[in-house]
């Protein structure tokens, strides 16, 4: 069993008065052997959630279960591994890539050298590159090495945090292909974080949308993309697929479209999206409920946290 489950996970930074709740009671499941894409704007808490899962940030509340067991309880090498955004900072510049990978191979396993070569070949690099330093490789190759290192600990879950956004566009595709191939070959569960909806669409089986520390929509990728139920998801989709034209919006819609993103230190009451919502209280009169009550995610298997998820 390698299902990764977040149950009521909260992460809070800073003190009582000036603190910031980056992740607020998040429930999220990465089914066994599946890829869940997590999208949202910067500051929505995506990366915090990822770092909390691998234990780099302590939880303030809730728990994270892997195959029904808390990841906290496990000793040194958790079966969860992470690949980071910037390959130039995620590899130690003073270690050969072979050493970097070998370090992540569990100790006491015989044939470490052979294992390093096997891993390098798994990510499409030839084994004789093990003696090179990260500075001698391109960004895309470094990202392959980072993936090989994550695979060295025989993980059951991989967390990929914006792994293509620091790469040149001509190289992104190769890394995405690799992630897909490796995931299918090894049957890994993957939490794939990106701000780029097109990239997420390409790799994910399920999509979760995060806004200001909350999951606002979750469901099978094709359903979320074809029939988004939350207005924020619709906004995201429109932003990447429609041509940009000034459009003739009515003034209320225009005002909503130009609203600044909310300050995470002072999230709005009720539904957090209501000040920017094109079908919320800023546009329609009968929507006071959005200001007063926080919507509970509903629907199965396609969840949406919106009082008016059924409407368009």
């Amino acid at each position: 069993m390698s299902e990764l489950r977040f149950e009521g996970v909260s992460v809070r930074y800073g003190g009582h008065r000036h603190g910031l709740t980056a992740v607020d009671t998040v429930d999220l499941t990465v089914p066994e052997g599946r890829v869940v894409g997590l999208v949202g704007e910067s500051g929505s808490g995506k990366s915090t959630l990822a770092r909390a899962a691998v234990g780099l940030i302590p939880l303030t509340g809730g728990r994270i279960l892997l195959g029904g067991q808390s990841v906290r309880r496990r000793r040194s090498r958790p079966p969860l591994q992470m690949v980071f955004q910037d390959p130039s900072s995620s590899l130690d510049p003073r270690m050969t890539i072979g050493d970097s990978i070998a370090e992540a191979v569990p100790r006491g396993r015989p044939g470490r050298r052979a294992e390093v070569i096997r891993l390098l070949e798994l990510v499409g690099l030839s084994g004789d590159r093990a003696r090179l330093y990260p500075a001698q490789l391109s960004g895309g190759q470094c990202q392959r090495v980072a993936l090989a290192r994550a695979l060295a600990g025989d993980p059951r879950v991989i967390i990929a945090d914006e792994i293509t956004s620091a790469l040149d566009v001509s190289i992104q595709g190769a890394v995405l292909n690799l992630v897909r191939d490796v995931q299918r070959e090894l049957g890994l569960s993957v939490l794939f974080i990106s701000h780029d909806l097109a990239v997420v669409r390409y790799v994910s089986d399920f999509i979760a949308v995060m806004y200001l520390g909350r999951i606002v929509e979750y469901g099978p990728a094709d359903q979320v993309l074809a029939r988004p139920r939350h207005p924020y998801t619709r906004e995201l989709l429109a932003a990447v697929s429609e041509p940009v034209d000034p459009g003739d919006l009515d003034p209320a819609l225009r005002a909503v479209a130009d609203t600044e993103p909310a300050d995470p230190h002072h999230p709005p009451p009720g539904c957090r999206y209501h000040p920017r919502c094109p079908m919320g209280p800023a546009v329609l009169d009968d929507r006071d409920i959005c200001r007063e009550h926080e919507p509970v995610p509903q629907g199965h298997p396609h969840l949406a946290a919106c009082h008016f998820a059924a409407e368009r």
Binding site: R51, V54, G55, L56, S76, R77, P78, L80, Q81, M82, F84, Q85, D86, S89, S90, L91, D92, S100, E103, A104, A146, R149, A150, A152, G153
Partner: peptide, 14 residues
């Protein structure tokens, strides 16, 4: 604060 230290931590280094 760099990612390679975080990565080593995740790999379970003391």
């Amino acid at each position: 604060g760099l990612d390679y230290v975080a990565a080593a931590r995740i790999a379970g280094l003391g």
